[in-house]
Amino acid sequence: MSQTPLIQILFLSVGLFFIGMYGLLTRRNVITILMSIELILNSVNINFVAFNKYLYPHQLEGLFFTIFIITIAAAEAAVAIAIIINLYRSHHSVDVEDANELKW
């Protein structure tokens, strides 16, 4: 039995969140953007589990939130990859700057 300050877990979560945010804002490959979104969702999951352990160590609310986030991430990845395949079929690239028909 050992103790770890909660704030270090929060700093880890913040760091992962903004690494993912930087990737989301700067990358152009759609698949890498999707990977950044998965990184962001995982950093939020760490927060949920840590606060569950810290606030209510004998209940499971945070864990259930995390499980539902994981399932939603799986569904989102399936639909997004179908969209990416369709985009590649019509534009022959997965660069977000090439898909600009809706631009103006």
């Binding site: 300050p5 929060l10 700093f11 913040v14 903004f18 945010m21 352990k53």
Partner: peptide, 28 residues
């Protein structure tokens, strides 16, 4: 954009005095 948001959140977490001396029991 990401760096300024990161600074805001890091300073917020750092200033949260409620949390600063709390510990998580691990392996329990």
């Amino acid at each position: 954009a990401a760096g300024s948001l990161l600074m805001i959140l890091v300073s917020l977490v750092g200033q949260a005095t409620e949390l600063s001396h709390r510990n998580l029991l691990m392996k329990d």
